[in-house]
Computed example of a mutant assay.
Amino acid sequence: MKELDTDIRNGLSSREIHLKKRLFGDNQLQQATRVSPLGIFFSQFNDFITIVLIVATTISAMLGEVIDAIAIFAIVVMNGILGFIQEYRTEKSIEALKQMAAPTAKVIRDKEISLIPAKDVVPGDVVLLESGDRVPADGVLKEIESLFIDESMLTGESVPVEKHLKPDKKEQMKIHKKNLAFMGTLVVSGRGKMVVTGIGMDTEMGKIAGMMNNFAAEFA
């Protein structure tokens, strides 16, 4: 595959791997700075509007307007609880995504087949896929043999997708193209060989993790 400087029979050379590793980094999903559940809860009360409401509650209580004070306090607490639930669920969802990533990958490098940590996969790597494997990165399929992949985590479809080497020109969405394989999806049957085109946050799974990180940051 010329655009990735990859020989699918021999794989990348040690020199190419070293250069790509320095250029692209680890094949891992990134997560926003983790905060304890208690920290997440208290962070719900540090925005300007909430502080104003807390001050209003205090003033109402001092003026003897107990009912108003209780009402405002209840609104502040409910808002904090809802915000905490949303942010906490987001944190857990990102952790679940990371657990779905493949721990190892079988690749061809320097003309030899090697089993490496999935985090060391780089763009241009030739990855061998077989039944039971988690796809370690996004890539283009170059060889297949009755290959079916469960992509429900990305598409919501419960039926495994039969893969082909030729792309469907009518299909516009990348995740529905049958000549591609995606990080975190599960090989149900068959085998195949793919050339990696995207790793870490530059994958379809990475895009989902990125949106979750942005959502969590809005509440931080």
Results as ranks from 00 to 15, higher is better:
Met1Gly: 15
Asp7Gln: 03
Asp7Cys: 05
Arg9Tyr: 12
Arg9Met: 10
Arg9Cys: 08
Asn10Phe: 11
Ser14Val: 14
Arg22His: 05
Gly25Asn: 11
Asp26Lys: 15
Asn27Leu: 01
Gln28Tyr: 07
Ser36Gln: 04
Pro37Trp: 13
Ile40Met: 13
Ser43Arg: 15
Gln44Ser: 00
Gln44Cys: 00
Asn46Gln: 14
Asp47Val: 00
Phe48Arg: 01
Thr50Leu: 02
Ile51Cys: 00
Val52Lys: 02
Ile54Leu: 10
Val55Thr: 09
Val55Met: 14
Ala56Thr: 08
Ala56Arg: 01
Thr58Cys: 09
Ser60Asn: 10
Leu63Val: 09
Ala69Gly: 07
Ile72Phe: 06
Phe73Thr: 13
Ile75Ala: 02
Ile75Glu: 02
Val77Thr: 02
Ile81His: 00
Gly83Tyr: 07
Phe84Gln: 01
Ile85Asn: 01
Tyr88Lys: 09
Arg89Ala: 15
Thr90Pro: 11
Lys92Gln: 14
Ile94Val: 15
Ile94Arg: 12
Gln99Trp: 06
Ala101Tyr: 03
Thr104Arg: 08
Thr104Glu: 12
Arg109Trp: 01
Arg109Ala: 09
Asp110Pro: 07
Ile113His: 05
Ile113Phe: 06
Ile113Met: 10
Ile116Val: 14
Pro117Asn: 14
Ala118Asn: 09
Ala118His: 11
Val121Met: 02
Glu130Ala: 07
Glu130Lys: 12
Ser131Arg: 06
Gly132Val: 04
Asp133Ile: 01
Asp133Arg: 06
Asp138Cys: 10
Asp138Met: 10
Leu141Val: 05
Leu141Tyr: 00
Ile144Val: 11
Ile144His: 06
Ser146Met: 12
Ile149Leu: 08
Ile149Asp: 02
Leu154His: 08
Gly156Lys: 03
Ser158Ile: 00
Val161Arg: 07
His164Phe: 15
His164Leu: 14
His164Arg: 15
Lys166Ala: 13
Ile175Cys: 04
Lys177Arg: 15
Leu180Ile: 07
Met183Gly: 06
Val188Arg: 11
Ser189Gly: 08
Ile199Phe: 03
Met211Leu: 15
Met212Pro: 10
Ala216Arg: 05
Ala220Leu: 04
